[in-house]
Amino acid sequence: MVSLDKAPLGVKVKVVDILGGKGIIQRLNELGIFPGTCVTVLQSGILRGPLLVSVGGRNVALSRGVAKKIIVEVYK
């Protein structure tokens, strides 16, 4: 298990946990990111920039700080 910012690009991974407070969890929930959801990291910005993540057929930009709080499982 790793945080989302360490997940490999272009590979489907499964969210197992979201750390952090109510605000951030609700924001992520609103965009369809829950424990159990599958997501794919499409792009990773330079200079520790944001990640572009595909979730539920829609792309979402997440800053690295947010991505760090999303714990995912990488399938082999």
Binding site: P50, R58, N59, V60, A61, L62, S63, R64, V66
Partner: peptide, 11 residues
């Protein structure tokens, strides 16, 4: 306490 960017990127 900042909530970092969480933004949709529509097609």
């Amino acid at each position: 306490i900042p909530i970092g960017m969480v933004m949709e990127v529509p097609p």
